[in-house]
Every structure is written in structure tokens, then in C-alpha cells.
Amino acid sequence: MTFRMAIRGIGLVAGFGCGNEAALNALHNGAAPNDVLSIQASTGGINYPVYQADPAPLKDFVPSGQLRRVNKYSRLAALAACLALQDAGRNIPCQCSDIAVIIASGYGASSTTFAFLDDVILQGDSFASPTLFSNSVHSAATSNVTILLQISGPSLTVTQFEMSAVAALLNARIWLEEKRVDSVLLGGVDQINQVLLYCYHGFFGDRIPHEITPLRYDLQTAVPGEGAAFMLLTADDGRIPPYGYIDMVSWEAFNNCTVPEDVLIIPGADGHRTCGLHYRKLLKAVDPANIKTFSQIYGCMPSGQMFDIALASIAAKNGLIPASFCSVKLDANGNLGLVHHS
């Protein structure tokens, strides 16, 4: 019998706001980019629509004095983690060691690294900030979540660009199956900043997208997004979970993979043309009525598959989509992650 993970709680923060009500609203009504960031390119000033996330509601869970040194990257993760725990009916802070924290991020705390470099470059090596440095490692979100929520269980940060979410999920499943812990607080978090937008411009040019159209596979319509999506997972212990089960997680080679039939497919297509063409090829035999994307709700980010799974689970709980679906995420290196939900 395959081991399945029960989803006990979900927490999200993204451009559409935070919490499951905001997420459900976005699922019903859609969600457009909520902000515009400006960058300088060689061709002049560029305004980039983005999905920008606000972690301010974290102060409802954690005293603001504890947050003074915590960077936005960590705050986004901590807010989504708190929302997931609250949704699952757990105490906050947890003060326990039987929860593991596993976080996936594509770009990590890049904004903090750049802030650190600002001081070094503009003022000198002696002006490097130890606080910024401590928070600039990819693991800062995981560390801050364990500290703020007082979780002393195992912790893990994985980074594998678009495959980060499935990588994290595989580890979560192992830890639950071997009973290393009773629960896993699993999340994905990524940030946007001017450097990222400058790179978007560098790669994709002056035509700035205002709307992601993921199923127009041959168009470059990616709009950068940031945020955090967390789930509280346990083993299937007989109690019916509010958000169903993740019953299969697998890492596949693109060339060797066929997507399952007779199940709703949630491709992680998010407007990037290179991957879009791969999705088109992968899904050509799938009835378009059986394909649904969510990236247009939260934006484009490497750990986006965590959002796909979380949003799809909320949608399924509210009858918007069937409980049986399969999230499919691929990268430009021929890797593919499949996550089946029931």
C-alpha cells in the first residue's frame, strides 16, 4: 500500500493577500498583479507589474519585538507557517519537537544578500552587517520559523529551482513514513526584488507582460510573484483530513514520463516560454478540459508548485475542482515532479 500524507492545514501569503479566505476569493475571482516595481535598464526606466506579498499580518501571531531582525523572506515563510498551523488547530508557538520544518526556495534570501552587498559596495568591507549576513543564508527562513514558533524538531531547507517543491515533498514523505516526526510543516517561499526584474528584462526584453496566460505555451507572459505557501502534513492516521491526501510524489525524467490519465492535471506552467513548450509537448494528449493552472493567481516563482498544490487543495475542499488531481512541474533540465492528490 502506498504511503499517503494527510493535509491538515494550509497557509498562504501572496499578492492576493493572506489566509485561505483570500485564497478562495482569488480562486473564484482571479487575481491580477497587485503592484508595480521600477527598474533601470539600459533602454531606460521600466515598470514591471508584479505580485507582491505583505507579511505584516505576522504581527497577529508573533510579538513585533521578536520580528525586529527578521527579514521579509523569513516573515513570509513564518506567516504562512502560522496560518497553516492555525488552520490545523495547532498551538502557536508550538513548543514541541515532533514537528519537522522543511522549506523549499528557489532563490533564497536574495534580497538580504543584496542588502548586505549594498553596505559593502557603497561604504566598504568594514560596514558589512552581521545581522544581514546571518539572515542571508537560504536556511534563514527555516531557522526563523523554528525560533519564532519554538519548534525544535528536525529541519531542512532544499533548493533546486523549479524542482524545489517536489524535492521537499519527497523528504517530508520519508520523515513521516519512518515516523521521525508526527507532522511536517512544509512550505515554499520566494521573493522578488529589483535584481530579479532586471534579469527578467535582460532575458525577455522590453515587452512587459501584465497578465500570465500559462496555457498560451508559446508566449513569454511570466509575471514575477513572491510569497509563501505552507501545509501541515501528517501520516494518514484514519482521521479524515480537511484537504485530502497527497498519495504520490515522484521525480521523473521528462523524456520518460507520461502524465496520468483520468485525473485533473495542474501544470506548473507560469508564462515562461521555454518551459511552456515542454508543457505543451507533455500535455498534448490531455483533454484541455482536464487542465487547470493556478500560477496566474500568485505569479511566477521557482517554488510555485507548493502554491499549485495548496491552492488546488483549497479549491478541491470547496468543490471548485475534483479531489483527484495531479500537479506537474518541470524545469529546463529535463526533470519533472509529479504530485498526486486525492
Partner: peptide, 22 residues
């Protein structure tokens, strides 16, 4: 003021930045 060891090393940088004192 509720400061800790990380604040102490940060304070060193702050003093350098605002007062030029090492």
C-alpha cells in the same frame, strides 16, 4: 535594552558607520 550578542556585533558596525569610530 533587550540586546544580544548579534546586536553587539551589529552595534560595532553602527558606531563605525555613524561616528567613524572603530
Amino acid at each position: 535594552l533587550g540586546l544580544d550578542s548579534l546586536d553587539a556585533v551589529e552595534l560595532v558596525v553602527i558606531i563605525q558607520k555613524h561616528f567613524g569610530v572603530q
